[in-house]
């Protein structure tokens, strides 16, 4: 996600980046996207017919 998108997500949720769920850089999915620590991933999920978006902050450890 771009800086702007991140900021808009953070302000709608009323939080700082640190409050987002985390994902390790070493996570296979993060590697696939070649994400760097500090990036925020936008994840589109579909569980049991419920589609929703959530976000994960890429972290070193």
């Amino acid at each position: 996600m771009s800086r702007n998108d991140i900021n808009s997500v953070l302000s709608t949720l009323g939080i700082t980046v640190g409050n987002l769920p985390k994902i390790l850089v070493s996570d296979p999915q993060a590697k696939k996207l070649s994400a760097k620590a500090g990036d925020v991933l936008e994840i589109e999920r579909e569980d049991f017919g419920k589609a929703y978006t959530y976000y994960r902050l890429v972290v070193e450890r």
Binding site: L13, I15, N19, L20, R45, F48, K50, Y52, Y54, Y55
Partner: peptide, 9 residues
């Protein structure tokens, strides 16, 4: 901290 962006999806 955000646990889920929307409760129960």
């Amino acid at each position: 901290n955000v646990i889920e962006t929307i409760y129960g999806g």
